[in-house]
Design a protein around this nucleic acid. Structure first.
Lengths: 159, 159
DNA sequence: ATAATTTATATGTTTAAACATATATGTCAG
DNA sequence: CTGACATATATGTTTAAACATATAAATTAT
């Protein structure tokens, strides 16, 4: 966590969006989820910016590293992604331009792609991993128990 | 809630993104938050689509209705928005084209805009409000206590 | 009063999201 | 084997997000 953030006073969602009443606790939770996402995603964006990649690109690198040295298809990447509506095809195009990933036609299914992380991609992840703590620590005002509880409530939210 | 959803079996985040291990509970909570946001935002997008507006446009309509019949400036809209990085200027342009909002120059501060919801905007909100339940009910697998708890944990997440 | 600074909004540009459609390969029923 | 359908990916187009910069009015300092 950045030092200056220690002086940041946390605000409730009511104050953050200057709205004092909500229809019900469910509406409030939903709005808070949308707001907190924006808060988190912008923190993450700031974190990734010096490395020249976006959140989604990092997400793909992580997925590919998890499979390394195996190849994986674009469809397989998609089911592992956080945003299932991602345009994987063009996301990969941009990452190929940066030489972070390698793509070939899959020999056993000529429709599919064989995608894997490149040496350069692995090295980038290694550099990012050194600073990983500051990524995880974005949420460290929660205790371990609270983080677990939050995750469980989010699972339950989706039915 | 849609009838067909009653047959949907909720999955934990591990299954949803096919990732079994996380660095720590905080990383897991963060990933779950990003994933659940995507789940929620796409549900909401589907909800708003028949009305011809986006989530952000609805958000602005709500804000303007909250002030109605008072005018409010673009900057004031921004501090009330869920996404503080919104391009309010062009968002309003699009809504003016749809005749959902009205914008004039503020006489007491000629830099500022006096924005208010139009009659057409109010009527649209009225139609949407009738179906509001299905918006709030997106999260109704949570009890009232859980929804409150989730909201509190989200507040705490942001320090 | 004037220059410097801040604030409110607009605009230009690049990149990505959203959505529909196309193409090519694979699978399966008959 | 053939036709119908499913799947994997690519591409075209429209719209919006991201970011920098510009303009104009208001505020502040000197």
């Amino acid at each position: 966590m950045l030092y200056c953030d220690r002086f940041y006073i946390s605000m409730k969602i009511e104050e953050e969006i200057k709205q004092n009443t909500f229809r019900n606790p469910h509406q409030k939770a939903g709005i808070n989820l949308l707001f907190t996402y924006q808060w988190l995603i912008h923190k993450q964006k700031d974190f990734f910016k010096p490395f020249g990649i976006t959140n989604q690109q990092y997400n793909i690198l992580r997925i590919l590293k998890g499979q390394y040295p195996k190849n994986i298809s674009g469809a397989d990447i998609k089911v592992r992604m956080l945003d299932k509506n991602s345009d994987v095809s063009r996301l990969l195009d941009r990452m190929i331009l940066k030489k972070l990933v390698v793509k070939n036609q899959c020999p056993s299914d000529k429709r599919a792609a064989d995608v894997s992380i490149s040496q350069k991609g692995l090295e980038l992840l290694k550099v990012i991993d050194i600073k990983n703590d500051s990524l995880d620590n974005i949420l460290d005002s929660l205790t371990i128990e609270e983080a677990t509880q939050l995750s469980n409530l989010l699972d339950k939210s989706r039915r």
